[in-house]
């Protein structure tokens, strides 16, 4: 309902763009109607992974953003350097806080638009007092969020370019992999339990868009959410390929993830056909967590590599062998 209404709005905005002095009216994901006199230029983002990265990718560089603190006390935008190359240290984006954002700093920046995410703690009622505010719901996926943000910033052309790139990559992948014939699942170990996703943000978007099938246990989870189940359900999660979004912010996170799984279910591979066939794929969480086209691109590539056809005689090596390169 909201989606179709939004599409009409965007179309209307596109048609009317040359005629009217570019006033924009947006219905955000909390159903609020927000009117901007012109596409926003001074934008403040209240959430790094779900708002700041899409804005950067659309070419609407925010002037300030929520971020996180690294162990050494330096602020960073989660996943951003990895996906957009941009972070606080190489851009003019101002850091406005982590858990609670500094509303005074936001007011002092005089933004013409504030974008926040539906799960953020900062009350929208306060943000509204500082500037027009739109609320996005990242569970609805990157294309939806980008459409909203593009409408607010006048970057519809960029949005169409990113979206058609993604659709083309998706089509290429579907041409080699037959998604409707494959069952996939996404989960990870969580201290003696399994955290099961339907089906984890960017990777989930790709899997659903491509038309993969999920085990019944995952099908029963509402789209975009996750549940914690007992390790006894492990066989219910078996599939042709399993994706495990490991903690890539830690040193050797993928190895630690396998070790955690191994501690929980010693020799777990023997119970999972995906794993026995070399298709227990560890994907970096810093990429998979981001609802952005950059992340979607990466995920399409990973899925294609994991499921694409392989030549006969194929066998996985447990560790890199370096056979092909002669020692110098």
């Amino acid at each position: 309902m909201i989606r179709s209404g939004l599409l009409t709005l965007i179309l209307a905005a596109l048609v009317m763009a040359p005629a009217v002095a570019r006033a924009v009216t947006i219905v955000d994901d909390r159903g609020r109607t927000v009117t901007l006199t012109r596409p926003a230029e001074r934008i403040v983002s209240d959430y790094d992974i779900d708002v700041t990265i899409p804005l950067i990718e659309l070419g609407a560089m925010p002037i300030a953003s929520h971020g996180r603190l690294a162990g050494d006390g330096k602020p960073y935008l989660r996943s951003s350097k990895l996906l957009t190359g941009i972070d606080f240290d190489n851009s003019d984006i101002a850091f406005i806080g982590a858990a609670e954002i500094d509303l005074e700093a936001v007011a002092a920046l005089k933004p013409d638009l504030i974008v926040t995410e539906i799960s953020r703690a900062t009350p929208v009622e306060k943000l509204e007092k500082l500037a027009p505010t739109i609320v996005i719901n990242s569970d609805l996926g990157a294309p939806h969020v980008y459409a909203l943000l593009a409408a607010a910033t006048g970057k519809e052309a960029e949005f169409k370019r990113l979206d058609s790139r993604y659709r083309a990559q998706l089509a290429l992948m579907k041409a080699e992999v037959q998604p409707e014939k494959h069952v996939v699942s996404v989960f990870q170990p969580l201290r003696g339990k399994l955290n099961v996703y339907q089906s984890y943000r960017a990777i989930g978007q790709v899997l659903r868009d491509a038309g993969f099938r999920f085990p019944p246990l995952i099908d029963d989870i509402p789209e975009g959410q996750s549940i914690v189940v007992s390790t006894e359900r492990l066989p219910d999660l078996d599939a042709d390929v399993i994706f495990d979004p490991y903690r890539s912010d830690r040193k050797q996170g993928a190895r630690a993830e396998i070790a955690a799984m191994e501690r929980m279910v010693p020799g777990f591979c023997r119970f999972l056909s995906a794993c026995r066939n070399g298709r227990y794929i560890l994907i970096p969480r810093e990429e998979a967590i981001s609802n952005s086209y950059a992340a979607l691109s990466r995920m399409v590539a990973i899925v294609q590599t994991a499921l694409g056809p392989r030549p006969p005689g194929y066998r996985t090596a447990p560790e890199p062998t370096g056979l092909a390169i002669p020692a110098r």
Binding site: F95, A98, E100, D102
Partner: peptide, 11 residues
Amino acid sequence: GNVAFAPIRLP
């Protein structure tokens, strides 16, 4: 909590 680690605000 506001001024000690600005712009980090501690709850």
